[in-house]
Simulated assay, not measured.
Amino acid sequence: MTVTVKNVFVAQSIDGGVYWRAPLGTEQPTDATSPLDDAFENQGTCSKDGLSVGIARSSKSEQDFDGVDYVDIQDEYNGTFKLTLMDVELESVKKTAFGDEKVTFEPATTSHGNRYHVEHSQDQLPLSSHVFWTRSGKKMKRWVVEVGRVTDIAEMKAQRDASTKLELTIKAKRNSNGNLVEEYGDDGEKLPATPTTKTVTITGSPTGGTFTLSVGGQTTSALPNNATASAVDTALEALSTVGTGNATVTGSAGGPYSVTLANGGTLTATSSLTGGTNPGVTVS
């Protein structure tokens, strides 16, 4: 085994955030890097104390007649997350701490500023979905709690020499897979892409109509039958699955075109060409 500091993880926030919450039933992330569903609300900045991840497992032993440990029995397993939030005036933070139905916000008017009202109730807080997301350089790590509840709130201090903070404890329940927590990681070390080069040929001598090209599930804008190589290049690079500078297209207006995709990918074409004899477009 080669020991290397590359295996160390020093946690940092994702654009300032560490913790997101959404209603039950929200689509759950299944990796460490893809964007979260819009229903997940950022809970703001976490204090330097960081995020505590408590995955606890404990067992007890039963002894035989001679007093020797004979069988061990797992008697506890839980997933608990604890963190301290600094943006205590955020609407999303107040709703997480006190309940969605217990917090109301009123926008500013000419007679008063933005207002809020929090009902401090003994009612148990609702079950929600929770995501904890951090990075370490290019590495990313994400813990997903599909079903969990805020169970504890620590004392909040209002003082002149420090900002008010809110310490929360979230406990995980069984998810749809029967687990408490799903953890995902990505070290950010992508393999170099293998460029692909294809020839796009317009057949049947069309006199009008359009055609489109697709890469990775995204489709270009409609291109005329006599599109220049430059127009085809621009249309391809407009796709997020290709990107600026990642396509090279050569050839005459109306084709054939030689298309090179720097990041690889499958190139397909669809024809709405007209005129000529059985007009179409092929990729080979």
Rank of each mutant, 00 (worst) to 15 (best):
V3M: 07
N7V: 07
F9W: 11
V10S: 12
I14P: 00
R21T: 14
T26G: 11
P29E: 03
P29H: 10
T30P: 04
T33Q: 10
D38S: 15
D38Y: 12
E41L: 14
N42D: 15
Q43M: 15
Q43N: 08
T45F: 01
I55E: 13
I55S: 10
A56K: 10
A56D: 15
R57N: 13
D64V: 04
V68P: 00
D69I: 05
Y70F: 12
V71W: 00
Q74W: 01
T80P: 00
L90Y: 09
K94N: 07
T96M: 14
G99E: 05
T104S: 14
E106R: 03
E106D: 09
P107E: 09
G113Q: 05
R115K: 12
D123Y: 01
Q124A: 11
Q124M: 03
L125Y: 05
W133P: 03
S136L: 05
K138D: 12
M140D: 01
M140Q: 14
W143Q: 10
D152I: 03
I153M: 10
Q159L: 15
A162T: 15
T164K: 07
L168E: 00
K171D: 15
K171Q: 14
S176Q: 12
G185E: 09
P195G: 07
T196S: 12
T196H: 03
T203R: 00
P206D: 04
T210K: 13
T210W: 05
L213T: 07
S214V: 08
G216W: 07
Q218L: 10
T220L: 12
S221A: 15
L223H: 07
N225M: 01
A227S: 13
A229M: 08
S230R: 05
L239D: 09
T244N: 12
T248G: 02
S252R: 07
A253S: 14
P256S: 05
T260F: 09
T260N: 10
G265P: 06
T268R: 02
A269I: 02
A269N: 02
A269V: 03
S271V: 00
G275M: 04
V281T: 01
S284H: 01
